[in-house]
Amino acid sequence: MISTIAYGLTIGGIFYIISIGLSLTFGSMRIVNFAHALIYMAGAYILFASMSLFKGWFIPAAIIAVVSVIPLAYVIERFVIRRLYGESIDLAIIATYAVLLIGVDITKWIWGATPIPVSDPVGKSLPVLGVDLPVYRLIIIVVSILIFICLEIFFRKTIVGKIIVAGLEDREATTSLGINLDKYFSIVFILGSSLAALGGVLYAPITTVHPYMGFQVILISFAVVIVGGLGSMRGTFVAAFALGMVMSVTGRFWGPAAEAMVFAVMAVVLIFKPVEV
């Protein structure tokens, strides 16, 4: 029981970290960015590659992974998404999917299609209420909460953050104040992408690294965003942990149903949601 809860919180934390970026691009540009899945996957693969460079040292490899996706995210934002923004939401979605396809194929080209395991970087366990819990998972929970607190401060206390929040709430009003929102949304995009890469890095030791890992995770992130409310930072936080628990509890009874259950919850939320999304 304890381990089920702990696992739920762990994947909830990871879902949160990954979903922030998706929620922000959803909220700001109304598009679903499939390339987000690519960046998540890139984070995991770059971690794997640089860990062999650092002889298995996790932290510097993780930092390299998170930092090195920034130019990738910039290129995608600048040359794919921004060029289509305002033209057609549908075409922008298709274009990001195309980017994902290309990225997946390049990944297969470089690393092959076989899943790669990444070992637990801490390896120790901590007894909590009589159950041994891997320290690494507890660290993930703490990291995700820390990120939440940092983002809350960023969006509520800093000027850049406040502008972004205002832009999410009412794009026209903010633009009419003479603020160039595109620039700020670029920041949002890169921030969200770095976090997606971080999510990939943190999740890698728990699952395996493979070229299609992004496809699975983007759907769950999407469910998080729907349940939490588009562009709502706190909603995303709560929904991520709630769905993490749903997945973990369902998985305890019937493993394969875990993911389907998340979508069932999402469908129920959509039914009772009064506003159109």
Binding site: F26, R30, I31, V32, I89, D90, I93, L219, F222, A223, I226, E259, A260, F263, M266, A267, L270, E276, V277
Partner: peptide
């Protein structure tokens, strides 16, 4: 009930 990106993805979720 949904449009745009939500429509795209909710179909995908049910497909899954």
């Amino acid at each position: 009930r949904t449009t745009g990106a939500c429509f795209a993805l909710i179909n995908l979720a049910f497909n899954q």
